[in-house]
Design a protein around this nucleic acid. Structure first.
Length: 424
RNA sequence: GGAGAGGUGGCUGAGUGGUCGAAAGCGGCGGUCUUGAAAACCGUUGAGGGUUUGUAGCCCUCCCAGGGUUCGAAUCCCUGCCUCUCCGCCA
């Protein structure tokens, strides 16, 4: 959510900023609602004031033993007026709120103009793309050959876009997760968290998935409803919902491994083969809660922490700055890390690192106390995958494949594999 | 699942219809004292919002959440959520 004060003080600026996203903000409708809000809110508060003053007078008169009947007669219809005003105010505020929650975050000034992922800007590349002297197999063929990856079984148990991993591949995914957690804890200073995989609507509202993106989520029948988390970002960032964080506890740095659940509505026909796009996948997520002045640097740091995993795994990747058309709803600036997939002869997203600035914090009411002003102020929130474990698994399989279909285990994972150096 | 207790400001905890946004203590901040510190003493100390050029005034809202009763609700009624204790069951 954006700052409502900005909408009142500089609507033109708001429109300009939103236009960068191609978001057509209807200023006329907003101004009509806002004018009515102002009028009705002032009226409501005046009525409340009158009720309070008169009630006090009645209390005092009664205490003195005076006849209060004339005073009661005077306030007779005040209650009805007040109730009507409060109802209208509630309705108008709900409308404004609906409008505001549908508006995306402002983009950072460094975000380039562009329509879609083709306009993203490559910042850097790392690593040598492997050269193979034999026909390259993709992860599905490799996984089938070693009998460690079974999509038909996933479909039987649940549906399409689910997989069953077995044996060494299942262990490799677990090794990847352990390795990533350990690295972030010991080398990057994150603190490990374990969180619920079901979240309530307040939490999903806080991080921005609701109300606009409900169709992307799996909803669990319950009263009130639960949602399967689409990313650990949701439960972890909500740790600071309605919290005023102590200044000296900042920055808060959390790392968390969870499964992630996505309905992938609207992704029909996209990435249907293999483990690229699943309803359920494992991810290690990095979340930082920082003072506003530090969020730009924190964004660079967090991204480098995710990059460090790719480097240690010796996986070729590139870092991309998302353009205006590809940057997510709540984000002000996003770097994607894309890993090299030999079978597709292209880079594919394996991490997305975003600075949300105060957009989530305002919804979450996540604040810190500024010792200079003594006042609570909104924090900045950031997160990034560090990394998506399922996609890391397939990147390793494809980049580390041998002619016979066996897969060499990356050096840093061998210990996590109980000394196993290759999978066949 | 059964029975009971309870949710009040950063924390502990008073407050059962009328100047209660809320006693008191602790903590925090500022000061006096001191070479410095501690102790003691004095003062101060919740959040959100409206109006406004205003971190000035004035006003509104908030004592778990949502409804209700009343001129007036932290206080009474209903519903929900959460926490704790005991019993049962259970990974």
């Amino acid at each position: 959510m954006l700052d409502p004060c900005l909408f009142r003080s500089d609507l033109e600026y708001v429109q300009q900023q939103l236009a960068r996203r191609g978001f057509d903000f209807d200023a006329g409708t907003y101004q009509t609602l806002e004018a009515r809000r102002k009028e009705i809110q002032v009226k409501t508060q005046e009525l409340q004031n009158e009720r309070n003053t008169r009630s006090k007078a009645i209390g005092q008169a009664k205490a003195k033993g005076e006849d209060i009947q004339p005073l009661l007669d005077e306030v007779q219809n005040l209650g009805d007026q007040l109730k009507a005003a409060e109802t209208e105010l509630g309705e108008i505020q709900a409308k404004i709120n609906e409008l505001m929650t549908g508006i995306p975050n402002f983009l950072d000034e460094e975000v380039p103009e562009g329509k879609n992922e083709e306009d993203n800007i490559e910042i850097s590349t790392w690593g040598e793309k492997p050269e193979f002297s034999f026909p390259v197999k993709d992860h599905v063929d490799l996984g089938t050959q070693c009998q460690g990856m079974d999509f038909e079984l996933g479909a039987k148990i649940a549906s399409a876009r689910f997989v069953v991993l077995k044996g060494a591949l299942a262990r490799l995914q677990r090794a990847i997760i352990q390795f990533m957690l350990d690295t972030h804890i010991t080398e990057h200073g994150y603190s490990e968290t374990y969180v619920p995989y079901l979240a309530n609507s307040d939490s999903l509202y806080g991080t921005g998935q609701l109300p606009k993106f409900e169709q992307d989520l799996f909803k669990v029948e319950n009263d009130p409803a639960f949602f399967l988390i689409p990313t650990a970002e949701v439960p972890v960032t909500n740790i600071v919902r309605d919290v005023i964080v102590d200044s000296n506890e900042m920055p808060l740095k959390f790392v968390c491994h969870t499964p992630c659940f996505r309905s992938e509505a609207g992704a029909y026909g996209k990435d249907v083969r293999g483990m690229i796009r699943q309803h359920q996948f494992e991810k290690v997520e990095l979340v930082q809660i920082v003072k506003p002045e530090n969020s730009v640097q924190a964004h660079e740091d967090l991204t480098s922490h995710a990059e460090n995993i790719l480097k240690k795994l010796q996986l070729p990747y590139r870092k991309v700055l998302l353009c205006s058309g590809d940057t997510g709803f709540s984000s002000s600036k996003t770097y994607d890390l894309e890993v090299w997939l030999p079978s597709q002869n292209t880079y594919r997203e394996i991490s997305s690192c975003s600075n949300f600035k105060d957009f989530q914090a305002r919804r979450l009411q996540a604040r810190w106390r500024n010792s200079e002003t003594g006042k609570p102020e909104l924090v900045h929130t950031l997160n990034g995958s560090g990394l998506a474990a399922g996609r890391t698994l397939i990147a390793i399989m494809e980049n580390y494949q041998n002619e016979d279909g066996s897969i060499t285990v990356p050096e840093v994972l061998v210990a996590y594999m109980g000394g196993m150096g290759s999978i066949s």
